[in-house]
Design a protein around this nucleic acid. Structure first.
Length: 960
RNA sequence: GCGAGCGUGCCGAAGUGGUCGAACGGAACCGGCUAAGGACCGGUUGUGGCGAGGUCACCAACCCAGGUUCGAAUCCUGGCGCUCGCACCA
């Protein structure tokens, strides 16, 4: 095969066929009476051009779309451009401030110096990038009907109207509620600070923190002690304060709280306006008594070295099952001087001891002491060991702890359950105040240290509603999830999702219909937009259909999506002709639900699960989603793609350089399943070479060749048919990389063998079948290339609109394939023999085929081995056969061997005649390769001692 | 820390209880073709055997350690390592 690298210009043919498809409108879609297949692509965020990550995910949808078209489906691919949210606004702001990295990013995407200032306006981003993205999609040859494309936010009034409808629906069902919400807050910017806006503290979040009220004896003062373990209140023994600190008395509502000085700010930010009414030295508190909730005794107030008044509320209560508390107490008990220094009563302190409230299997009654012993802790100075011990104990409590009998109504509960119950009870009794504490220090990009702020009037989608969760589970249960192993994760996420803050104070999007101060957040406005994609053709191009979309209302969507109401009334309120309203309804009914949605695995936990919830809430069951395909993340040359590593590629760079088909093929080969895929830059060249070769081969050989047939033709035809079968199954199973392997790689390999065995003289019918089938199976992956080849071999019409090849089960000939395998085996055995015998130039080669009775024996033995492994019985059964009797001794030997290692028996038994035929047909090739005379004989008639070893499928080989 | 997934030859990757020294692709090496070749063709790529004219035997082997089984890359338990997510970020 002569290879001419330049024989295919992948960029040129892409342009040619793109124009052809456009002029013949092959990618335009209308609802009709065919089976439909609706692919809802996850729309990309419009803060830049599409990159390799998008390419990889979209390639899956694209291959499937074209495959389904060839299977006779009417395929709609929905494509949108996501503009909702804050990143575009933030990026525009950075352009305005002329931030160098932001400007550089835009320059790299090909934006000229003079156009840069335009990007300081967020709305310009929403104009520019959708337009450019659509160009990219077309140039990649994606099977998208551009009339259906749309962008999000108020910039697109009909989309805006649909999101309002969605939220009204959710609210009607009681799934949207107002509530308080803690956020990480920058006091200088007066804005929430997300992970990406921090100079320090990525991953830190607000964590629940409970302040428990301890009322001082003979006083109206209340000591506030912070904790994350309210269950430990059942074993409270004393209070700890910082002996060096000064405390404040603040009025909160009608109460007077005692807290560390630094806690006042927290009260103000998270609770209520406090009023400072006094100060207290630690000494004034020590030795006093206070009483906490859940117990009927007073606690003694003691100093502790580990307390820092700046942390939490500045006061902690002690539960001596905790090793930290226990060590601290032991320190006091063994240092009477310290007690005397603070004027404390040694009698009281010496009587303090742990109260056992939690039982953990395999642990005793004194958990604190047990941990101290285990970690070999000697004093309070072993801080690291103490922290570890405490951590281990907390984990054990959380996982295995059960409340003991002395815990009143909480007895018998698991510790986490008791924590929740106690928290709830005390909250209702107003014995605690709820606070949040950051899990670590967070510093805003503006270098201000962040705090927790409670947003008072945040709107939430109540994904924690148990009934709703049930519906979501039901929806999932009816779906196909690929790969199936990820279903468990969906199950988990559905249960885990809590309420979701669905509104923002700023950013692009749709205003919450009943509270215009808020903008609907971007993950929440995209959960049912696949429904919009079924009718977007009309709504995005209203003038083509003679109406205006500015009066879209809930009535309209109620009718189109849910079939409720009266189209005549809809006409009246929207001004859209009744006929068109009805057409949109029927289009929706035709296309919906979506059959397929594909994303990378990072959207599983939010977007895809939200999609389930919202469909379950809003749509009829018949309109619930059908299939999710989740892919891994894309790596470039086995490295994570990132701008800083310099391996960040836009889709545009790639197709401009290599042409779209090469990029599509490389992306499809990058991987499948949930594991990370690898986009291999070297593969571009491999792909070009392979396709070029295929191109010349098909053109040179299609519809040419001999007309007489040979056994190898049967074999090859069988291989072609099984390749079609395997490829089709892979496509149906959404395994696109496998599909390429079964078609492109496997078939090329078989072709090589076939050409060799036929001396480059293929059979005309079979080779044409091969060419047609292969080029068709490649069409979904490399459509431009396929069209080009299709045209070059003189076929009429577009291959994109042709039918997927079918295979004939009866043409898949196991015997022919097994026979070919025998020849391959013989050839490899040959070279071994030659090597070992050190014969370089054999003169004569004899293949001695086993006698007929051995074939009989093998077939009986294979059957019998399934029933028994008893040697005697096997031999006896075999010897009942008349033809085998005379060979008793040999039979016994063979049976023994087979028992020891069943793999010695040939896998597929073909008849002796077929086997000989296979060798005969390979004879010429062997003679040519070894330049030796080849003869095929009956082993039984041979005098060679080796002849006895011949077995079915394993002839004795004699080389001289 | 929690949840889900993964861990196979030089690399990527198939393989879910015997037919597995392990498909397929890449890479490397040897040989052939050739003026030359990054192209093509054939072969090799765990270790050992002064067994051997192949279709063989033996040892070891699919992250590590145990276990279940007549039998495990495949099932179970524990450990180690990696990936994704963990909420206002799309």
């Amino acid at each position: 095969m002569a290879v001419d690298e330049e024989n295919v210009d992948f960029r040129k043919i892409a342009q040619k066929w793109r124009k052809k498809w456009a002029s013949e409108k092959v990618l335009q879609v209308e609802a009709d009476n065919r089976k439909k297949y609706y692919i809802a692509i996850v729309y990309p965020y419009m803060s830049g051009l599409l990159h390799l990550g998008h390419l990889f995910t979209y390639t899956n949808s694209e291959i499937l779309a074209r495959y389904k078209r060839m299977r006779g489906f009417n395929v709609l691919v929905k494509f949108g451009f996501h503009c909702t949210g804050t990143p575009i606004v933030a990026a525009a702001q950075r352009v305005k401030e002329k931030e160098p990295t932001q400007l550089e990013t835009l320059r790299k995407m090909g934006i000229s110096e003079k156009d840069l200032p335009k990007f300081s306006d967020p709305e310009y981003w929403c104009e520019y990038f959708p337009k450019e993205t659509l160009i990219d999609l077309k140039k990649m040859g994606f099977a998208i009907d551009e009339r259906y494309t749309f962008r999000t936010t108020f910039l697109n009034p009909p989309y805006d109207a649909m999101v309002r409808w969605q939220f009204n629906k959710l609210k009607e069902k009681g799934y949207v509620k107002k509530g308080k919400h803690p956020v990480v807050w920058c006091p200088k910017d007066n804005l929430p600070v997300g992970d990406h806006d921090r100079s320090e503290g990525e991953g830190e979040t607000p964590k629940d923190f409970i302040w428990v009220k301890f009322r001082m004896k003979n006083s109206d003062l209340i000591l506030m002690a912070g904790t994350t373990r309210p269950d430990a209140l059942l074993g409270q023994t004393n209070l700890w304060i910082d002996p060096k600190a000064e405390y404040s008395i603040v009025e909160v509502g009608k109460e007077k709280w005692v807290v560390g000085n630094d806690a006042i700010k927290k009260i103000e930010q998270q609770y209520a306006k406090p009023k400072l009414v006094g100060k207290l030295k630690a000494a004034e508190l020590m030795g006093k008594w206070a009483r906490g909730p859940l117990v009927d005794y007073d606690l003694y107030i003691l100093p502790a070295s580990f307390i820092d008044a700046k942390v939490g509320s500045g006061i902690v209560y002690s539960a001596l099952e905790d090793p930290v508390d226990l060590v601290e107490l032991q320190r006091l008990q063994t240092n009477p001087d310290t007690l005397r220094k603070y004027g404390l009563d040694t009698g009281v302190v010496s009587k303090l001891k742990p109260i056992s409230i939690i039982s953990i299997p395999e642990m005793g009654d004194d958990l604190g002491q047990e941990m101290i012993n285990k970690y070999g802790i000697k004093s309070a100075k072993d801080k690291e060991k103490l922290e570890e011990a405490k951590g281990e104990l907390n984990r054990a409590v959380f996982r295995k702890g059960v409340m003991k009998k002395n815990c009143g109504k909480y007895a018998g509960m698991t510790s986490p359950a008791a924590q929740a119950a106690i928290k709830k009870d005390l909250h209702e009794a107003r014995e605690i105040a709820m606070f949040y504490e950051l899990t670590g220090k967070v510093v805003c990009r503006c270098l201000t240290e962040c705090v927790v702020k409670i947003v008072e009037d945040q709107w939430f989608i109540e994904y924690n509603d148990p009934e709703w969760k049930k519906l979501a589970h039901k929806c999932l249960g009816k779906m196909q999830i690929h790969p199936e192993i990820l279903r468990k994760q969906f199950e988990y996420v559905i249960d885990w999702l809590d309420h979701w803050a669905c509104t923002r104070e700023y950013g692009l999007g749709t205003k919450l219909p009943w509270d215009q101060k808020w903008v609907i957040e971007s993950l929440s406005d995209s959960t049912i937009q696949m429904a919009y994609g079924t009718i977007s053709k009309y709504l995005q191009n209203p003038s083509d259909y003679g109406f205006s979309t500015h009066k879209l209302n809930d009535e309209f969507f109620d009718y189109v999506y849910l079939g409720r109401g009266d189209p005549a009334k809809v006409e009246k309120s929207t001004g859209i002709q009744r006929k068109l309203v009805e057409k949109m309804r029927s289009d929706f009914e035709y296309w919906y639900p979506f059959d397929f949605r594909n994303s990378a695995k990072d959207l599983l936990q939010n977007h895809l699960t939200f999609c389930l919830f919202n469909h379950a809430a809003i749509f009829q069951e018949k309109h619930w989603p059908r299939t999710f395909l989740i892919n891994g993340r894309i790596m470039v040359n086995n490295q994570k793609m990132s701008k800083s590593k310099g391996n960040f590629f836009t889709m545009r760079e790639l197709y401009t350089k290599h042409g779209p088909d090469i990029v599509r093929l490389t992306a499809a080969m990058a991987g499948e399943g949930a594991d990370d895929a690898n986009y291999d830059m070297k593969f571009h060249e491999v792909a070009k070479r392979k396709l070029s070769e295929l191109h010349s081969f098909i053109i040179e050989n299609y519809n040419k060749g001999r007309t007489e047939t040979s056994p190898v033709d049967e074999w090859f035809e069988s291989k072609v048919n099984s390749a079609i079968k395997k490829t089709t199954e892979a496509m149906e199973g959404l395994m696109f990389k496998s599909a390429i392997q079964y078609s492109l790689s496997d078939m090329a390999r078989y072709l090589k063998i076939y050409l060799r065995r036929t001396g480059n003289k293929p059979n005309k019918r079979v080779i044409s079948l091969f060419c047609q089938s292969l080029i068709k199976m490649l069409t979904p992956i490399v459509p431009h290339f396929s069209e080009e080849v299709w045209e070059a071999i003189g076929e009429k019409g577009l291959i994109s609109s042709s039918q997927w090849p079918t295979y004939e089960e009866e043409k898949i000939d196991k015997e022919a394939e097994a026979a070919e395998q025998l020849v391959t085996d013989i050839l490899s055995d040959f070279s071994k023999v030659l090597e070992l015998a050190k014969i370089e130039k054999p003169k004569e080669v004899m293949l001695l085929v086993a006698p007929k009775w051995k074939y009989e024996l093998v077939s009986i033995l294979k059957e019998e081995l399934k029933k028994t492994r008893d040697q005697r019985a096997l031999i006896n059964t075999c010897l009942t056969e008349k033809d085998l009797k005379p060979h008793g001794e040999d039979v016994a030997k063979i049976v023994q061997g087979a028992l020891k290692d069943p793999s010695k028996l040939p896998e597929t038994t073909i008849t002796r005649e077929k086997e000989i035929e296979a060798y005969e047909s390979a004879k010429a090739e062997i003679e040519k390769e070894y330049r030796a005379k080849v003869s095929i004989d009956d082993a039984e008639k041979s005098k060679e001692p080796k002849a006895r070893q011949a077995m079915p499928g394993k002839p004795a080989i004699i080389v001289k």
